[in-house]
């Protein structure tokens, strides 16, 4: 199995608080990998490190065999041209139309003519099912359409890697299902590596080939979806069964907690 992304011994801090504790795993090429975990497990932080927005305290991140933790900002541009990111709120530039948003990476990184860029933009918008909405501003779009426009922009330069941060967050189930279908289609059509950070169980079952699970900053599982479903690790079982973890305290500990004498 060829690796697209490899994370080795990643340790990160937010202030003095340790968020990721020596995380090591790899993400296979040409598959859809989901990064799972509850709120506060560090999965968003992990994504921000992989896309190079944060520098780790310790550890290395290899993307296509280049260690991005040791690259300069200028060298990073080459890596970034080969990856697309959809942020949680889509993060479209509000001052530009949808078309201009999608065209932005192309105009900044290539010397193509305006008419060529127009055609590329229309192709990408058609791909995500937004043909005809190019002239609208992001504030005129619904939540689902914003995410689709965000995916179109992330796909603008035909990347090898597509990162999606909680694509179905804040969407109704039908819109979320539509987005899942789009993700599946993107993988089929373009054979790209897709990394999705999510905790939505229904979409995990539809889109994922491979899973990485985090809990409190530590990796608890990496493997294929079938292995995940077969696992008898109590954390994984309770996550997949949507059962809250058993964290009730013993009477003595509870007394300590409320009196503050821990």
């Amino acid at each position: 199995m060829e690796k697209a992304i490899e994370v080795k011994g990643l340790v990160t801090h937010y202030g003095t608080r340790e968020i990721l504790k020596n995380v090591t795993f790899s993400i296979p090429r040409g598959m859809t990998t989901v990064i799972l975990g509850g709120s506060g497990s560090g999965k968003s932080t992990l994504l921000r490190h992989i896309i190079g927005l944060l520098k780790p305290t310790k550890g290395n991140i290899f993307i296509n065999e280049r260690d991005i933790t040791s690259l300069s900002e200028i060298e990073m541009i080459d890596v970034r041209k080969k990856m697309g990111v959809l942020f949680q709120g889509a993060a479209l530039l509000n001052s530009l139309t949808v078309s201009d948003n999608v065209a932005l990476p192309v105009t900044e990184h290539t010397k193509l003519q305006g008419s060529t860029i127009d055609i590329m933009v229309r192709m990408k918008l058609d791909l995500v099912g937004l043909s005809g909405s190019g002239g609208l501003y992001p504030s005129q779009l619904s939540g689902g359409m914003k995410k689709r426009a965000g995916i179109a922009r992330a796909m603008a330069l035909d990347p090898d890697l597509l990162f999606l941060d909680e694509p179905s967050a804040g969407l109704d189930p039908v819109t979320a299902a539509g987005l899942d279908e789009l993700i599946v289609r993107l993988k089929k059509v373009f054979k790209i590596t897709i990394v999705v950070v999510t905790h939505e169980l229904p979409s995990i079952h539809i889109i994922a080939d491979y899973a990485v699970m985090l809990n409190r900053g530590e990796i608890v599982f990496t493997g294929t979806m079938d292995e995940l479903k077969m696992s008898d690790d109590p954390q994984i079982v309770s996550f997949l069964a949507r059962r809250p973890p058993d964290d009730s305290l013993a009477p003595g500990d509870y007394l300590k907690t409320i009196t503050g004498n821990s």
Binding site: R48, G52, R80, G84, V85, F87, L93, L104, E108, H109
Partner: peptide, 8 residues
């Protein structure tokens, strides 16, 4: 952040 990830 989106601008940064687009290499801009």
């Amino acid at each position: 952040d989106a601008l940064v990830t687009m290499g801009i």
